[in-house]
Design a protein around this nucleic acid. Sequence first.
DNA 1: AGTCCGGATATTTGAAGATA
DNA 2: TATCTTCAAATATCCGGACT
Length: 417
Amino acid sequence: MRYSTQNVLPLFEPVSTGSVSGGAVPSFADLVRNFAEFGGTSVQALEGSIPYLINEFWTSGQRQAHSIHEVSYRACFKPQLPEFFIKRLTKSGDAVYDPFMGRGTTPVQAALMGRQPIGNDINPLSVLLANPRLAPPTIREVARRLDHVTWDKGEVDNPELLAFYSPQTLRHISALRNWLIERAPLDGMPDPINDWIRMVAINRLSGHSPGFFSVYTLPPNQAVSAQAQRKINKKRGQTPQDRDVKKLILKKTAALLRDGPMSSHPPALLTTGTAEFTPAIRSGSVHLVVTSPPFLDIVQYAEDNWLRSWFAGIDVASVAIAHHRTEEGWQNMVRDTLKELARIVKPGGHVAFEVGEVRNGKVFLERLVWAAAEGLPFDRLFVMVNQQEFTKTANCWGVRNNSKGTNSNRIVVLRRF
DNA sequence: AGTCCGGATATTTGAAGATA
DNA sequence: TATCTTCAAATATCCGGACT
């Protein structure tokens, strides 16, 4: 099913976060408890001292969200997740924040719903992926700009990459890379059209369909090493073919803009840095946080993104992405992050902190988050568990639904007092 | 000398849903 | 119907240290 305006409109109505008096307006807890949009009713459970509410909350099956979200990134939640909370806990113009924004699902969804998008991530790649989609150019503008790129000014200056690209394709990619680094430097003034082109190009670098610049390789959220790619090529008997870089960028641009323009929204604030210290964000300025941190050391974000970082001109070694191997270290990181969120979130505002079960179902991260919030100025409301028959389409690496990998969204819901 | 164990490292993909 | 796009790592192996 396509994402339609009809799906969006009701979301823009201001909603109350509930009130203890009167009882005419249901509280958020009541809304969650009584949720039954996909047939099932919420199951309540108490494990230890943690109240759980279990249901199918976000989507029935794999429902597509707004097309502007369709940017590949490792470990991103469905846009329906932030939508669920934004719809019920904020009104138009409110600020919605994600300290681990990744591809920017939360700020983009917030913008689509007329809220103020605020986002942060330690990886500079995040701003490059999120910011252009908050103010997209038109296809015509992109096409005109692409005609100005000096496509003949590219060399094969990194022969390793010939494992992924034909020489001609690599020359075009290099030409675009050089052109963007010169015309739209990362520390320079934003240029919505150039920044958009870079965002799309980053997303076309590698994948396993003809819509990408590369020969068939692993899925686009994880770039294999050049050495591993040479092995894949040998095993499959494949050689990189020429790809039309400009045409593919335009095609993906059209796909991203298919569902129409971005909604008008208050100005965005996107930063690059640690979630534990975000001085650019004013105290008490945020109404809702919807976020999901890295899960222990499961995903190697820097390595997975080496090819994208190369294209963008980011020095991967300079990006200090913390990998917490131990549960204790991870919980300390979460606590320090929650302390900063306590500063940023206004009284009465909420935090939806999404984690999952990892280590083959042995570690339930929401328990660590719940413990980390102890003693901070938050009411710990409950943990929502989103359970579906179907959790992901991926079956590479032998991942199967509801057996391997992370198969449930587990959201610790806090309210600032 | 042999075994066990935990941690580190290298290797490896296919089904579901949307769209044309 | 055909094609395109997407996707929160498990498993096998190696290595070094602890222990028998």
